[in-house]
Every structure is written in C-alpha cells, then in structure tokens.
C-alpha cells in the first residue's frame, strides 16, 4: 500500500515529531510512505469561521495537489483535517465538476488510527509505553468520521500502557478553531470541566488524534502546572518505551 502522508499545517509548523511518528507507524504497518511537498492546509480555519471563498481557494489547491499524486491513500494524523476533506464538497454546491473532484479526494482520505484498523487491519504496531493514559475523542473524528473504537484498540495493544476511559472522553476540549480566541473564557471553562474527570483518573498522559485539541489541552495543563502530559496517537504508537 502506497500512502501519501498529509501532516496538516499545525504539525508541519508546531509539532513535526507527530508527522515523523506517523510515517514511522505507517511503515511499521507495511506501507510505503511518501510526503507531497505541495501540501499546505485543508482550508478548515476559513471554512469554520465562515470564509467560504477563502476556504474554497485553499481547498482547490489541496484537491489539485493530490490529483497529481498516485498514492493509494492519503493519510492524516488528524481526524479534524480528514473530516474537513469529507466536507469539501459543500464548498462546491454550484460546481458539479469541482464537487466530483472533492468527492474523489474524500474517497482516498483517511485518519491515521482508523486507517490502520479499518483499512490495514492492524491493531498492534509493536509499540511500548509505560504508564496510565486516557483517550480524548476529538469531535470531528468521533462525530463526523465515527472513530471511536479504533484508537482504543490500538492503545490497548501498546505494551505497558494502561488505557483508562473517563466519562468526559467524548466532551469537546473547547478548542473549536477561532472559537478558542473569540470566546476564550468559555473555551477554557469547557476544558476545565473536562479535565476534572481526567485529573481524578490519575493518568500520566492524555492521548488524542488531533494536535489542535492537544495544543488546547496541553496549553491549559501547562498553565495549571499539571504533571499530566499530552501525546499524539502517532507518537504513542511510535514509542518504544
């Protein structure tokens, strides 16, 4: 299986280790991994703030980039970006040709964890991590793409890791893109309520599939001088203990 890795703009600029880890995990699962240098962003920041023209422009760049790429699958260490690709068609409601191109891209696009489990049938990538961790369901992966069990199964197979499910695992972390800076107090209050349950669970780390959530959660934990760390799923799966 030839995979083209889309790392997302946030991973590229802020969190490159997640991209490297994702490539490593995919290779361990037997994929041939490529990185298309033309990639930028999926367009979500503009789309979610209401700037459809701007989002469309970026989306067209994204579609063109991968039309020239013959990989079998485009895999992203982000449920949010993958969900956005599945929404791209909404930007081309009056343009049948572009809509078809957007749909074709969506067909080939997958979030990392669900790709491993659903497409490759891989649940154990031979990772080792010693400690108690909990999973944060990022909203778009969970509710737009229906990713719920896959990451949990992957984590359960990391030797040494103990997965603790907290009741707030499915509540939003409060990031929401520009929401986090338009209503920062509400955004942080949402997160604090979520973190109450996490802190009671006595875990070493919160694992998630999206760096945007981890940026929000990690930024707050750091401000609160918490000992709990944030780890991306790709990093956990690439970890050797």
């Amino acid at each position: 299986m030839r995979v083209s890795l889309f790392v997302s703009c946030l991973v590229d600029q802020l969190w490159p280790s997640v991209g490297l880890a994702a490539a490593d995990v995919l290779r361990r699962a037997g994929c041939e991994v490529d990185f298309n240098d033309e990639q930028t962003c999926c367009g979500q920041p503009a789309f979610n703030t209401g700037y459809r023209d701007e989002a469309r422009r970026v989306a067209q760049h994204m579609i063109e980039t991968y039309e020239g790429d013959t990989a079998d699958a485009i895999v992203m260490p982000s449920g949010s970006c993958a969900a956005m690709v599945h929404h791209l068609r909404e930007l081309f409601e009056d343009d049948e040709a572009w809509r078809a191109r957007a749909e074709a891209l969506a067909q080939r696009t997958f979030e990392l964890g669900s790709f491993l489990v659903r497409e490759l049938d891989v649940e154990d990538v031979g990772a080792r991590f010693d400690g108690r961790v909990t999973w944060h369901d990022a909203c778009h992966g969970l509710r737009d793409l229906g990713i719920r069990d896959e990451p949990r199964r992957l984590i359960a197979n990391v030797s040494g890791a103990e997965l603790v499910d907290v009741h707030s695992s499915e509540s939003c972390c409060g990031f929401g893109g520009t929401f986090s800076v338009k209503y920062p107090e509400v955004s942080v209050a949402m997160l604090d309520q979520k973190l109450q349950a996490v802190e009671q669970a006595d875990v070493q780390a919160i694992v998630s599939g999206d760096v945007s959530c981890l940026m929000q959660i990690g930024g707050r934990l750091q401000r609160r001088k918490s000992a709990v760390r944030t780890i991306h799923l790709a990093e956990l799966l690439a970890s050797r203990g």
Partner: peptide, 21 residues
C-alpha cells in the same frame, strides 16, 4: 492575548516537518 490569558502557547518548532522529512 485571548489564547494566552488562560493557556500557554505551544512554541513553533525550530524546524518544520518538511525540513526534517
């Protein structure tokens, strides 16, 4: 300002993913 009022900002990586790749 809105971000840092309640959260630390993650510093950008010294080198981007594509450079490292």
């Amino acid at each position: 300002g809105a971000w840092t009022a309640g959260r630390e900002l993650r510093p950008a990586a010294p080198r981007s993913f594509r450079e490292l790749w």
